[in-house]
């Protein structure tokens, strides 16, 4: 009896392992295949490295100056994180303000949309003149790119509370602060996280836009400076590092949600 059950357990866990590894191995195999085809066709058709470098060339160009590349990566990461944190710090009170009164919402919403309709690439050089050629304009651009979806999803979350629950709070004479802290904010958590996931991805974009315009460090700067000298392999390397950074940061947000708000994941709603 026991052995039969163990047997079944084992075959079940084996099955599960095969299934989960299929989810990982299959896309990985496809990726490897694509890279091999890329490498092969670059050599086969003798494509010039400054037009399309082979993966091996990208690897070599990036790793031979690895410490420099890492320095640039850290600089970009710094801008991304500060911009992201600033956009959280601004979005949350703003969302609370917007949802607290229809007047504020009517007054502020058009302004928010206005900030979004300004092309950030056009704004960046102007900001550099106004704020100086330092870290600040890059952070401001990152913030401007990232904060909008955050405000919208936070506001949607704060308004998603069932009206019965608000009435329940009122029937116990909960203060506005208690209503916000005990009911509205926790209710908004799934919405906030769907906003955070969009915002962290956009923050990377924002930081690169800022670096394109004015920077002496960062992966965006590395791309502009290396393409200026037709060092395409290095530009590719910087680009790959940027996407890796985006993926890792996104996953960190996902993990934070799963660990600290386990009831939240799985019921998020895509707002943006």
């Amino acid at each position: 009896m026991a052995t039969a059950r163990e047997e079944r357990q084992r075959s079940l866990s084996l099955r599960r392992f095969v299934l989960s590894s299929r989810d990982v191995l299959l896309p990985a195999a496809v990726l490897v295949l694509l890279v091999v085809m890329w490498e092969g066709s670059v050599h086969l058709f003798d494509i010039k490295p400054f037009i399309l470098p082979a993966p091996s060339a990208i690897w070599t160009a990036t790793t031979e100056i690895w410490s420099t590349v890492m320095g640039h990566t850290m600089a970009t990461l710094n801008t991304v994180l500060i911009g992201f944190l600033v956009s959280i710090a601004v979005s949350l009170p703003l969302a609370v303000l917007i949802t607290s009164s229809p007047y504020v919402s009517t007054a502020v919403y058009p302004l928010l949309v206005l900030t979004q309709s300004i092309p950030k690439v056009a704004l960046a050089p102007i900001l550099v003149i106004a704020l100086g050629a330092n870290e600040l304009p890059r952070i401001v651009v990152t913030f401007l790119v990232a904060f909008f979806p955050l405000v919208i999803s936070m506001a949607a979350g704060l308004l998603s509370v069932p009206s019965d629950l608000i009435e329940l709070g009122r029937s116990y004479r909960a203060s506005r602060f208690q209503e916000l802290y005990r009911i509205r904010l926790p209710y908004a958590v799934p919405f906030i996280f769907s906003g955070l996931k969009v915002a962290i991805a956009l923050a990377v974009v924002g930081a690169v836009v800022g670096e394109f315009v004015a920077a002496d460090r960062g992966l965006g700067y590395l791309i502009t400076s290396s393409t200026a000298f037709f060092k395409t392999p290095l530009a590719f390397g910087a680009m790959i590092l940027l996407s890796l950074m985006g993926i890792v940061l996104f996953q960190i947000v996902v993990v934070i949600e799963r660990v600290f708000f386990p009831w939240s994941s799985g019921q998020e709603t895509v707002v943006v």
Partner: peptide, 29 residues
């Protein structure tokens, strides 16, 4: 505060356990 209300939907807090949900009014007050 000496009135209890029950609605058509349970309106429990999804992030709190049943015990904490029951304690919620005491926490608010």
């Amino acid at each position: 505060r000496d009135i209890g209300m029950v609605f058509q939907s349970p309106t429990l807090l999804p992030w709190a356990t049943i015990l904490d949900n029951v304690l919620f009014p005491l926490k608010l007050t």
